[in-house]
Structure formats: C-alpha cells, structure tokens
C-alpha cells in the first residue's frame, strides 16, 4: 500500500507540496492527476527516495529493489541495443537474461531486441523504458506520464499492459494530465493543483459528487470546477 501523510516539500522559498495526503490500495491503479507543474513528479521523486520531504511521512510497501520506475526522461543507453539495456539491469537485479526478452515481448519490442536504442521512435523508447521498469516484476510500479506524447495506438497498448500488470498483482501509481486516461485506467485518483490535493476517490464517485457524470465520468469538468484551471 502506498501512503502519504501531510507531506510538505519546499525548493528554497517556493512550497511545491502542501500537506499532501492520500492512500493507494494494494494491487490497484492509482492516478495522480494535475497539470504540468502541479507537483506530480515531485511526489514520485519523494516516494522513490530521490528527494527528501521537508515534513510528513510516507510508505510504499516495497523496497527500492521491489519498485519499478518509469520517469519523464527514459535514461536509456542510446548506443546499446534494447536487449543490452535490459540485460544490464537484469545483471544488477541478479535475474536471468531471458527475463529481458520476456519484458520486450510484453511491450511488443521483441523484434527490435538487437536494435540500437538511438534508432528507436519516441513510442518505442517509452515502451522500452516500461520494459525496464517491469523487468524484475516489481511489487509497486511508478509511472510518470507513461503515455505522454504517444500516438493513440501505442497509448492503448501501454494501457492494456498496465491493466495486465495490475491484474497480476502489481500496484501501479501513475501520474497524468490526461483525465480520459485516468478514468479508463484508475481505480482511485487524486486531483493535484498547485501542490495540494483538491479531491480524491474513485473517478466515478468524484464525478457524481460534483454532478459531472455524463455518459462517462468527466473528471476534466470536475478539475476545472475545483481549480478554475484548464488542463493542457
């Protein structure tokens, strides 16, 4: 279970997170929604221990070793092949290299195993980054804007994969500014605006609470109603 309680984060005089509190259940997809600059990545950085919070506490229910991570920058080795990138991490985790091929197959990159990462398209790189994140079958998976800038088909493939991982027992924590994606994927969401959680719960219930339920729950309208800010 991922929990954050009263987290505060400041960068100099600028407070980027104020009293952030939420809970994500085990084996669910939890979405953190908000526009760019709301503090989503900062929350992931705190949860993955890349940043220290100034106040409050948190737990993820998994050690760093049991955590998978996909960030906005993929950090892949461009000159190495897809498989070499995964084999490096397989060696670090102490797992067999065949897991690399399995992960590539899961993200639809099996045929590109020997291709150099530098020659891949953005969507393929993103899928490879996801393959690296799931390589060691983590208990908790953090995904920062996993489908940002991708074409609908590739995004759809990634959604399918995320759902599959959750069904197999992985807790998924993702950030997005795409409300439609959140409604389709997430069991629970938290809406983040200027470093504060303005609403949280099941997407459909949030929409009901704010009378924003059309044929599908319309989180975007709820967000605009609560914050007065439009998402890009």
């Amino acid at each position: 279970m991922i929990k954050m309680k009263n987290i505060v984060k400041r960068f100099g005089a600028n407070t980027v997170l104020t009293d952030v509190t939420f809970e994500a259940g085990e084996r669910e997809i939890f979405g953190l929604l908000g526009p760019s600059g709301a503090g989503k990545t900062t929350i992931i950085n705190i949860l993955t221990k890349q940043l220290d919070a100034d106040a409050g506490n948190f737990e993820t229910g998994a050690s760093l070793f049991e955590t998978g991570l996909m960030l906005d920058t993929d950090g892949l080795y461009s000159r190495l092949s897809c498989l070499d990138n995964l084999n490096l991490f397989a060696d670090i985790y102490g797992i067999p290299h065949k897991k690399g091929l399995e992960a590539l197959e899961n993200v639809g990159l099996y045929d590109a195993a020997k291709k150099s990462v530098g020659t891949l398209s953005k969507g393929m790189r993103q899928r490879l980054a996801l393959a690296r994140a799931i390589l060691h079958e983590p208990k908790v998976l953090f995904l920062d804007e996993p489908t940002s800038g991708l074409d609908p088909n590739t995004a759809k493939g990634i959604h399918k994969l995320i759902k599959g991982l959750c069904e197999n027992g992985t807790t998924v924590f993702l950030t997005t500014h795409n409300m439609e994606e959140a409604v389709k994927l997430c069991n629970h969401v938290a809406l983040l605006h200027q470093g504060k959680i303005v609403e949280q719960g099941e997407p459909s219930k949030i929409c009901e609470r704010h009378n924003s339920y059309k044929t599908i729950p319309d989180l975007e309208t709820v967000f605009i109603k609560l914050t007065g800010v439009e998402l890009e």
């Binding site: 760093l64 070793f65 960030l71 950090g75 892949l76 080795y77 985790y93 690296r132």
Partner: peptide
C-alpha cells in the same frame, strides 16, 4: 546528463 545513472542508483547500484 541522460539520467541513466539515476536509474542505476534507483536499481540499487
């Protein structure tokens, strides 16, 4: 620069 090192550190290196 490419943040590759960050991923290595997170993986336990």
């Amino acid at each position: 620069e490419t943040r590759s090192l960050r991923f290595l550190i997170i993986a336990g290196v």
